[in-house]
């Protein structure tokens, strides 16, 4: 049903993307690096690896990023000494994530819901029609009486926005709140 590239995207979306914020926080401590560059390179390295066999994606993601930072410093003419010290102190790999560190699907959805609420109305409508309702770009265009070109551009714009949200948001990735047994979101009496 999915080709290899789709499977890889799904895997990255499920196991890597949710940890980006945590990794970026750790990367920020290192001087003279561009976190975006490191993250982008890490995606390539992970996609080229046997990602399906990775058992602790967050720790793997972090170690890839750390290696990339190290490579960057090896090539740099001036290496910030504090960063190098940090790097050495940082060699302990992440242990298996505890339950609190595992990002809950529901929490991810809440994040997405908040993020798309900030999109301009038309951009949001198009994204919802395409990704939530499953209409094709052509059908979205017909429904909103706009050109397909606009649909494509607005979807790209929504993606850029979401990309920014994923890299900048200060989400706390814990599930404490989610773990509490609770009842359905809407409680209503049967008419």
């Amino acid at each position: 049903m999915f080709n290899k590239a789709d499977e890889c995207s799904i895997w990255l979306a499920t196991h890597i993307l949710p940890h980006e914020n945590h990794i970026r926080t750790r990367l920020r401590r290192y001087a003279d690096i561009d976190a975006d560059d490191i993250i982008h390179e890490a995606y390539v390295t992970i996609a080229e690896a046997d990602w399906a066999g990775i058992t602790n994606p967050r720790a793997y993601f972090m170690s890839i990023c750390r290696n990339l930072v190290m490579q960057h410093y090896r090539r740099a003419r001036v290496v910030p000494v504090t960063s190098l010290a940090l790097m050495q102190a940082d060699t302990m790999p992440d242990a298996m994530p505890s339950a609190e560190q595992v990002v809950h699907a529901r929490q991810e959805m809440r994040f997405l819901e908040k993020a798309i609420a900030k999109l301009p109305a038309r951009c949001r409508d198009i994204l919802i029609l395409r990704r939530a309702r499953g209409l094709s770009q052509r059908e979205c265009a017909a429904q909103l009486n706009i050109s397909e070109n606009i649909v494509e551009k607005q979807l790209a714009r929504a993606l850029v926005f979401l990309s920014k949200e994923y890299s900048e948001s200060e989400r706390e990735m814990t599930v404490d709140e989610e773990r509490r047994p609770r009842l359905a979101h809407s409680r209503k009496r049967q008419p």
């Binding site: 995207s9 390179e41 997405l112 994204l127 979401l162």
Partner: peptide, 23 residues
């Protein structure tokens, strides 16, 4: 190589946005 990374990441975000269907 970073272009390839940005592309992989954009595709992952696209996949993640499919979760909107559940909402």
């Amino acid at each position: 190589r970073r272009h390839k990374g940005a592309f992989l990441r954009a595709k992952a975000i696209w996949q993640a946005s499919g979760r909107l269907a559940a909402l």
